[in-house]
Nucleic acid binder design. Structure first.
Lengths: 168, 168
DNA sequence: CTGCCTGCAAACTCTTTGCACGAAT
DNA sequence: ATTCGTGCAAAGAGTTTGCAGGCAG
């Protein structure tokens, strides 16, 4: 670690520190070590405002600790999802997206722009009930559910192309 | 083509023939040719009872016409989804699944077993309305929506492991 | 010390693509 | 003939993993 990231004068949000404790507790419980790389990846993830990919997380983590490697990012992401620090968001485009998990974990729907793949999230309070209903009809025990809506964003509708489109 | 697959005495279901006409109409409209390989892939796809992957489709198509290559399967799949012959089902496991499209296209939810990845489908009549509601709150125009439920299947709940699990 | 953790690079999986040959009109 | 379609194999993207060395406890 190049510089301590949890020292006095750090104006990190309370939820960030709470999540950090949660993460460290998870590591301890699993008999895993709290390394500088894991902390850098954790901090980089919690700093994100939007959904991010593994590659983007690598960039941000390296800004905090340039010794972080791609492999460690990929090895740490499952630890953070298992400990409910992050939530995995799959929009069917090959690469996985992540974002800090909130308390209303399963009560959120993703709305994805068909052109630029920008991900919006929106509260979906009926979803959990609906997932249960649907699963119970088949005699299965529901674990989680995901409602994903593909949509045209405002920019796409007016100009036929999203400003922040990356593909093609 | 090794043997004709649409001759007299073929007991194909009506919907299969109807879909074939739809597919051929789509190809014609696009100025694309109706080749033996494309027909073999089409027939193999329509014969499937369950969700299938590109690789599985290749196997089945080769059983009908051994000149079919992987590349042609991958090039034909988009043609069949665009013509609404097939529906793409993404369950977030890297590979894409497909199945013959039915009329109630967007009114279906997938229930996926957490252990064996077996895909069940179930009617979800409220989903479309819900997708619209959710999207309109953001000022976006919904195009399609997908409700996916992860669940433990019966075998998994009783034995802790699904009989048809492939992974690990 | 001991063993978990790491970076590197190679391997892997699924899918796409360039190319030259082949088939349909 | 001309144009589109095809198989093959290589390339791509994203992710995982084997290995030798490094660092935490």
């Amino acid at each position: 670690m190049l510089t301590p990231r949890n020292g006095r004068g750090d104006s990190r949000a309370v939820s960030h520190d709470a999540a950090r404790e949660k993460f460290q507790a998870y590591l301890a419980q699993k008999g895993l070590r709290v390394t500088n790389q894991r902390l850098a990846i954790f901090d980089a993830a919690l700093n994100q405002k939007e959904h991010f990919t593994a590659e983007q997380l690598l960039d941000h983590a390296r800004a905090l600790d340039d010794s972080v490697s791609r492999a460690t990012v990929y090895r740490t992401l499952p630890l953070m999802t298992e400990s409910l620090i992050l939530r995995e968001v799959d929009i069917g485009t090959g690469e996985k997206f992540y974002r800090p998990a909130s308390s209303d974990n399963t009560q959120v729907a993703q709305v994805v722009c068909v052109d630029c793949d920008k991900i919006f999230e929106i509260s979906a309070p009926f979803m959990e009930w609906y997932g249960s209903t649907v699963s119970l009809k088949l005699g299965l025990k529901p674990v989680s559910q995901r409602l994903q809506v593909s949509a045209q964003c405002i920019a796409y509708r007016s100009s036929g192309r999203c400003p922040n489109r990356l593909r093609k």
